[in-house]
Design a protein around this nucleic acid. Structure first.
Length: 493
RNA sequence: CGCGGGGUGGAGAAGCAGUAUCUCGUGGGGCCCAUAACCCCAAGACGCAGGUGCAAUUCCUGCCCCCGCAACCA
């Protein structure tokens, strides 16, 4: 694969971003940067979901016009992308014209599978939601403790049931790959237990006039599935069949969605079905990550345990936050967040591990008053072994283990220093000293390259300090570098 | 019989059939280039009960506990 479209889920803008949003964005960015580092082409897309009724409700609660409310919150998500130092190529907002037009076009492309039907359900006016009978508590809305009304409404439905067999085939055969395996099984279970058609519109009134009109029916608004999921193609220019859309979607080699475990069903079932109906290519891979928890519990407003990513970024900076989120958690499992762990990781891995190692190397280099010839690398075999592990782990979406491998190298270099004692060879045996330092510089340069997808700025700083910046790795050999001490990479807290 | 994830030293995590690993913390030693950093050694753990195997933390069964999700609420 040489051309990757990488997407994140688009976020609801009914509240400010939390740390969980940041986790997904960082993972997707790491993937994007990783593939670019291999020389592949990448289009990295992220954005916001602004048409949902939740936004209308939240806006009303704050007494703001919906448009203004959505605008304000969307800016927070854009700011988050910036502060996380994401390398996204675009940012789609579902209130943009390119999206609206694309959604309507997709709807029309699926017309043969869309029909009108009367839906009858128990509707709570307070929640503005339908409830199923067994969701009620003593026949009352669990939220408002009121009796829901039985109402009926004529809505549009999508013939999801028709695609049950095809979807099951595509997923079991990995033509549509779902990572990890456990999520794939979950989705297959769901599909094989029988798919029902889904409702894809709601009355304009119930939608509070917010959202995208169903083509040729202004009494109905497009409901979440067609609206939100389609962002992946509308952003690329589906509405106008742009060159970009052709390049990345129609003839894309890798279409990879990064999403949270809560929405795997929609991405692995509804979305491919819509695309099948419209005769468009399907995504190739869906990568499902876990959630951040706090003390073992889900992050939730009601529990008051929301972690604010902006605070973390202010305090620790994007490099450290990125490193922590990638190193600390297994990407596909839930991860228990705590700020103490950030500090522990910072202290041991970054300050006393990598940062101190660079200091040691630079200080020794500076003591040796002439440039060091990068000729010998005594740790070449080990370094290659590490790189192999790293590549494998990255391909398997085990980012934390990939970093662990890199730190095996960091630790080995610290040990190498302790064992070889270059501060002695510098006087006894200058030639040996130079070889030892060359080993260290070349290996540390490798470390810098390997961490680049996760910590792009740190990587640059290290390469610069080692005077290897802007050189391809193959040109490192037989280079002469003059090292100088600088400011610590990660000062102690 | 709804579905899924999980229970590993004091804390947080890896591992998932064959001397149980890492980070922090604790105790001891070494080094002295370095961000009082680095290196080495030590104490300390596989929820419970059965089963299969030469061998189980790892596979199977049952139980207990924790956490999510249960279909128009992404």
């Amino acid at each position: 694969m040489t051309r990757h479209l990488i997407t994140t889920a688009i976020d609801y803008v009914n509240a400010s971003p939390h740390a969980g949003h940041a986790l997904e964005k960082i993972q997707a960015d790491v993937l994007s940067r990783y593939y670019r580092s291999l020389g592949d082409e990448v289009f990295f897309l992220t954005g916001t979901d602004e048409n949902s009724l939740k936004n209308v409700q939240s806006a009303e609660k704050e007494g703001l016009p919906v448009k203004e409310f959505v605008e304000r919150n969307a800016k927070q998500f854009m700011r988050l992308a910036q502060e996380l130092n994401l390398s996204n190529d675009d940012f789609i907002r579902t209130t943009e014209t390119r999206h609206t037009l694309g959604v309507q076009k997709l709807w029309q492309a699926c017309l043969k599978d869309i029909y009108k039907k009367t839906y009858q359900g128990l509707y709570c006016v307070g929640c503005e939601e339908f409830y199923k009978e067994d969701e009620l508590v003593n026949g009352l809305c669990p939220e408002h403790k009121t009796k829901p009304e039985l109402i009926s409404e004529e809505d549009y439905f999508f013939r999801l049931s028709k695609y049950q067999h095809t979807l099951s085939e595509l997923i079991s055969s990995n033509q549509l790959e779902i990572i990890p395996e456990s999520r794939k099984n979950e989705v297959l279970n769901f599909i094989n237990s029988g798919l029902e058609d889904i409702c894809i519109s709601r009355s304009t009134q119930r939608a509070h006039h917010w959202g995208i009109d169903v083509p040729n029916d202004s009494n109905q608004k497009v409901w979440v599935w067609f609206d939100a999921l389609s962002n992946y193609i509308t952003a690329l220019g589906y509405a106008t069949e742009s060159e970009q859309f052709k390049k990345w979607w129609l003839t894309g080699e890798d279409l990879l969605h990064c999403i949270g475990k809560g929405i795997s069903r929609f991405h692995a079932v509804y979305w491919p079905a819509m695309l099948l109906s419209a005769g468009l290519p399907l995504p190739k891979r869906i990568f499902v990550h876990g959630y951040l928890t706090v003390k073992g519990e889900k992050m939730a407003k009601s529990l008051g345990n929301i972690v604010d990513p902006f605070q973390l970024l202010d305090k620790y900076g994007s490099e450290v936050v990125r490193y922590f989120f990638i190193r600390e958690f297994s990407a596909t499992e839930d991860g228990n967040f705590s700020e103490e762990r950030i500090q522990e990781r910072y202290q041991s891995d970054l300050a006393e591990g990598l940062g101190n190692l660079l200091s040691r190397v630079l200080a020794l280099g500076e003591k040796y008053h002439s440039p060091i010839l990068l000729e010998k690398n005594e740790l070449l075999d080990f370094r290659q072994k590490i790189e192999k592990q790293y590549q494998q782990k990255m391909q398997e979406f085990k980012f934390n283990e990939a970093l662990a491998s890199v730190w095996d190298l960091v630790n080995a270099l610290n040990k190498y220093l302790t064992d070889k004692k270059p501060w002695k060879t510098i006087t006894n045996n200058p030639k040996e000293f130079e070889e030892q330092l060359a080993t260290l510089v070349l290996s540390l340069g490798k470390v810098a390259l390997l961490i680049a997808p996760v910590m792009p700025e740190t990587s640059e700083k290290i390469l610069e300090a080692l005077q290897l910046k802007n050189l391809t790795e193959t040109n490192w050999h037989n280079l002469k570098v003059s090292l100088k001490t600088g400011i610590p990479l990660f000062p102690k807290l």
